[in-house]
Design a binder for these strands. Structure first.
Lengths: 144, 144
DNA sequence: CTTTGTGCAAATTCTTTGCACCAAA
DNA sequence: TTTGGTGCAAAGAATTTGCACAAAG
């Protein structure tokens, strides 16, 4: 389970040198499975790593995504979200509170990496939008 | 077939008043099935509608999406794309040239609007990333 | 008239870039 | 030393906002 892995080892298994900042970011992603934005990560960490800069958070997440250690979720048009769980699953985003949940995928036919016509597929993404229980009850109107 | 519909009637069927600008934009979306960005639409139309402003293109697309006349595709982190075909289908984006294709969806189980646990789903999106034939041959390196 | 739509300019937000400094091999 | 990592400030790009004017009923 990713959650139990050692941040340093996790980085090294993806060929990423474990600096202080990188370890802090991976650790944060492992412990906070909320699909955070760059902003979320920065805000959470600059207290314990006071010199941390947003540029470093950007650089680091870009590196992680390139190396396959983290998944970039492009779901809403405001912010990219990040997920350290790279296994096959879908996502749900609430249009009202904008939180994202993991959704297990039973029949994963549609998500297989494969060839369609002339297209070489390297990534598949399935996501849902709607209203979570909390927001659906209060029904704060908001278009997706 | 959407493509053959009259732009004015199409707008009215979604309760949208057909101004000159709105008609021009719908017409463009019907005739150019390339999943254009705001920029694409603006660049294509300001020649024939010289007073057109980008703000109007933003306003108009926002209205269309709210009224369900157009689909907003959030696939890459750079630009939102728009699709006048709101029927059930998936999308493929080439990581190199960034063009988007429609992909027919056979088994659409995963895309049904339904209830998962406490979540009320109102939209489903399935998209693939990879390389199109043209870019795969030239293999211009580029991470998604 | 009154309401709705349009468009300019400015502001805001998110992300990237250039460059200097720091740290590890 | 040399290379790679970090962080500040500035730049860039996409989108939104405020407000005045125009158009339609």
């Amino acid at each position: 389970m990713i959650i139990n892995k050692n941040p340093r080892e996790y980085l090294q298994s993806y060929g990423i040198k474990p600096s202080l900042q990188r370890i802090a970011i991976v650790e944060y992603l492992m412990k906070n499975r909320i699909h955070p934005t760059i902003e979320d990560i920065y805000n959470a960490l600059y207290i314990q790593v006071p010199t941390l800069s947003k540029t470093t958070v950007y650089n680091t997440l870009k590196l992680f995504v390139e190396q396959g250690a983290v998944l970039a979720l492009v779901i809403d048009d405001k912010n990219v979200r990040f997920d350290i769980d790279t296994s096959c699953h879908a996502h749900f985003q609430c249009c009202s509170c904008h939180r994202i949940w993991d959704i297990p995928v039973g029949n994963a036919d549609l998500l297989q990496v494969r060839q369609i016509d002339d297209l070489l597929i390297t990534e598949s993404h399935l996501y849902y939008k709607g209203y979570c229980k909390h927001c659906n009850n209060k029904m704060v109107g908001s278009s997706c």
